[in-house]
Write a protein that binds this DNA or RNA. Structure first.
Lengths: 297, 297
DNA sequence: TATATTCATGAAAATATATCATTTCCGCTC
DNA sequence: GAGCGGAAATGATATATTTTCATGAATATA
């Protein structure tokens, strides 16, 4: 295998700095013969002299100069690597891959991420929304580290924490006849255009918890990717949408929007963060959940 | 000292390539437990997992990915270094530092260097002309590897080889009254302007071997750095110069120059290449002397 | 010339690394 | 789900390597 090892480079560098084996040995916590032997070994194995004895001090040969430049380039990388790896080990560094199974939560996530990034300057955040085998599968297969979902699935090896509650409401524009209604019933949406995110309807609570139980379908459904455009559409009376109440309030300053309770009792939702149990000692991950659960956001 | 060593990186790289410890072990001529132990060691010392067991294969963790990228960057440098150093050891590679104590030899040197560089593509050539403690001193102190000199000094540790003989002649221009003379005597230079390279006169053979023995000095001396300008001056009758005959012949096609023997018998010179005895096994150095001694040039 | 300092050397001790023989784990098949 | 097979983990042992200790040799300094 390789002949040249990291410690050889360290020795060469240190001897070049100090100018003598004895002094270098002191700094490296090695005796002078240790260095002498180590160097002799690579000199023999490579068949090249690294130092020339000049008087009683050592002078690098051309080959030695070359090695020194290698050492100067390579050793810092080893040192960096070691501290980096320790940071990985401490849970100070890494990439937190967040999977989202809840479209409107994106707005909420954004508010958490930025203070979080400040707290963990060495941690990167990555958000993913598509999973071949569903969010839970993505967690198990290590595709993501955290799953943001309204549907916790209590399986061994996984761990879900509720992070916030909200109410799902219908949003209508200023011109809409329902705008002042105290609540809305499924039948009242029969003639409406319902604007949703582009996901299957079984993943939309407005269907699963409101329309389908009553056996009702809206007149038309439009799929829109972004919340902003969706709300512009609603504002201009081009349809209605079902969104978290906090989100509607958030947009209230920009658009004239009216939230209406879904059904007499409203639809209460809860968002959970799921993670693998094996990640329990990863500090930056644990910390993210604390940030998320904290009521400040 | 350092924890991470080159062989750890090798193992990580190879396991990543092969996908299993057993297969990697085969390629590295190590057994599977050897790899297992090696990795366990750094995992413990750095406090970070490098692989995750996923089913029956190993998957790199984030820390592991980081290490792999380090390995991909750093290992090639080690490999390159080893072949380079072997080349240094074989005398295939290096910098040949040539010291010149003979100004006109520069022209001769140029003719040798270019075929030499072709023969030794990994060897660099460097030419130096100023030495604090003389050319011999520069050889001893490893400032240069080869000394081109007309004055060999047989000292223990040094080794001189004659490489070519030439005749030192006086050069005059077309208008010069001596132009057809068979030879010139010291007295005949009393009224002349002598053009020389800018070195002390004790290093100029025209002084040491011709003028000084006769107790004669020229009317005037001009110092000029380059041979070309020197010969332009001579062509235009602004002075005379002492140069090797072969050099004058070389310039004959460009300038109208007349070489004249110095004294009845002429001045015969010999150029030597000096080197340290300790460099005897440096092939590219030995080869340079062969090139220089070869009569082709 | 004596002296102190530095590198080289060889044998012995201390460490680290690799192996062997098992065990454990996981996936696959019957 | 019991048994099989492939692969990693483990622990004890053996082998290599590294380090030290105790010197010797060389060289500059007083």
């Amino acid at each position: 295998m390789g002949i040249l090892e990291r410690n050889h480079l360290t020795i060469i560098q240190e001897v070049a700095r100090e100018g003598s084996l004895t002094a270098a040995g002191l700094r490296l916590n090695l005796t002078q013969p240790a260095l002498s032997h180590a160097i002799r070994k690579i000199e023999n194995q490579l068949g090249v002299k690294i130092w020339r004895r000049e008087g009683r001090s050592l002078v690098l040969t051309q080959a030695g100069e070359w090695l020194l430049s290698l050492a100067d380039r390579v050793l810092p990388q080893f040192e960096l690597a070691e501290t980096r790896l320790q940071q990985f080990g401490n849970g100070e560094r890494g990439t937190l891959r967040i999977g989202m199974e809840c479209h409107p939560c994106y707005q909420w996530l954004l508010k958490i991420v930025s203070p979080y990034l400040e707290r963990w300057p060495k941690v990167d955040v990555d958000v993913r929304q598509k999973f071949q085998f569903g969010g839970i599968g993505a967690l198990f297969s290590n595709e993501i580290d955290i799953l943001v979902t309204p549907d916790p699935l209590y399986k061994p090896g996984l761990n879900f924490t509720p992070v916030f509650d909200y109410e799902l409401v219908l949003v209508v524009g200023a011109q809409h006849p329902l705008r002042e209604a105290e609540f809305v019933l499924p039948e009242q949406l029969m003639a409406e255009t319902l604007i949703t995110y582009p996901v299957p309807s079984e993943r939309l609570d407005i269907y699963t918890q409101f329309l389908q139980p009553a056996g009702i379908a809206p007149r038309q459904q439009k799929q829109i990717e972004t919340t902003d455009i969706m709300l512009v559409m609603v504002t201009h009376g081009r349809g209605v949408a079902a969104l978290p109440r906090w989100l509607v309030e958030e947009y209230a300053s920009r658009f004239e929007l009216y939230p209406i309770k879904l059904g007499k009792n409203g639809i209460a939702k809860q968002i959970f963060l799921g993670r693998r149990e094996t990640d329990e000692e990863v500090q930056y991950l644990e910390s993210f959940i604390e940030f998320a659960a904290s009521p400040h956001f």
